[in-house]
């Protein structure tokens, strides 16, 4: 599994802080499902290979189950990516 681009709804506050609110993922039946991001556990800026990204470790509620996921925001291309583990 590779990191996959995903759709995200995020808010950008006046200080320039980014907060992802919703994420849209495909379920087992290839149907797009929107999940609310319940909580951001931590975020960190990375610059591997000189490419600036912001990593968010957050939890979503999926089938009544809390799941921890990591998503990355690519600062240059404005893409959101779901980190595969």
């Amino acid at each position: 599994m590779l990191h996959m681009p995903v759709d995200v709804i995020a808010t950008f506050n006046v200080q320039g802080k980014i907060k992802p609110n919703f994420i849209r993922l495909e379920d087992e039946y290839h149907v797009l499902q929107t999940y609310k991001i319940e909580n951001i556990i931590f975020s960190r800026e990375e610059k591997y290979a000189g490419i600036p990204v912001i990593l968010f470790c957050c939890s979503i509620m999926r089938d009544g189950c809390m799941q921890v996921i990591q998503i990355k925001y690519h600062v240059r291309t404005h893409q959101w990516v779901l980190v595969s583990d």
């Binding site: 599994m1 590779l2 990191h3 990375e46 591997y48 290979a49 490419i51 990204v53 980190v83």
Partner: peptide, 13 residues
């Protein structure tokens, strides 16, 4: 090395 880092961290290989 650069390609390796890119594949590991950006592409997730």
């Amino acid at each position: 090395s650069w390609e390796a880092v890119y594949r590991l961290h950006i592409r997730g290989e």
